[in-house]
Amino acid sequence: MRHWVQSLDDTVPGKFEVTRTGVVHDLMAPNGRHELTRARLRKRLEKVMPEALVAHTGEPDVEDEPEGIMRRPDVMVIAEAEMEGEGSFDPRSIIAAVEIVSRSNPDNDWVSKTRDYPLIGIPVYAIFDPRTGTGAVLTDIHPTPDGPRYATRKDFVYGEDVTIGDWTISTDGLPRYEG
């Protein structure tokens, strides 16, 4: 599935990810408010994290081949040293994944990734939703009959401080989608 998705990346608009249940295709390119949110979160995280860590916003994907899952978080907190290898990042090297909810496919962030990220071992998942000016930080992976899930969810409203992993950042001034 990975090779098929990668072959489409440069020929079909949008972003592809492989989930446990199939391929997700977000037809819409991220808009300016989505990208501004991502840039502000990256900068805010990097101000408070140790220098050996980065809030990465690009490629490559995060892939767990045995589970058949390939994702690309909007922001990945990862040790800079982990970025020196080739190929996809090992999900167990990701300290936190941050997603900005897409206007065109919000269930991908609120439902699918909430299922996939604990399954592949990402310990902290933060969701920022510019549609509503709210979000949540999910932590504490635990086993369930349906597979690993996050046990703890801390909701927040834009304007409040939010703790992602060991770092607290402001959500003041994060843009909202219009309309």
Rank of each mutant, 00 (worst) to 15 (best):
Y177F: 10
R38F: 01
G58P: 05
P73D: 02
T37P: 03
K154Y: 02
Y158S: 11
S102V: 08
L53R: 01
D26K: 14
V77F: 02
T57A: 15
V75W: 07
G58L: 06
W4D: 13
T57C: 14
D90V: 09
P145S: 05
M70A: 13
L53F: 04
V5F: 12
T11Q: 12
D155T: 12
E17T: 07
E35K: 13
W110M: 13
D90Y: 03
T168D: 03
M1T: 15
I127W: 07
E67Q: 13
R153K: 10
V162G: 01
K47G: 05
S102N: 10
E17K: 03
A79Q: 07
V23Q: 09
T139R: 03
D129L: 01
A55F: 10
D107V: 14
M49F: 06
R72E: 11
K15C: 08
G135Y: 05
V124Q: 01
G179M: 07
L53C: 03
K15G: 07
A55L: 08
T171Q: 09
E178V: 12
E82A: 15
S7Q: 13
W167A: 09
G173D: 12
E63W: 06
P91H: 07
P66T: 04
E65R: 14
G87K: 06
D10I: 05
L45E: 07
G58W: 05
I94V: 10
L41I: 15
Y158G: 14
R103C: 03
S170R: 05
V54A: 14
M49Y: 09
T37D: 09
K15D: 08
T144I: 11
E99T: 06
L53D: 00
A81D: 09
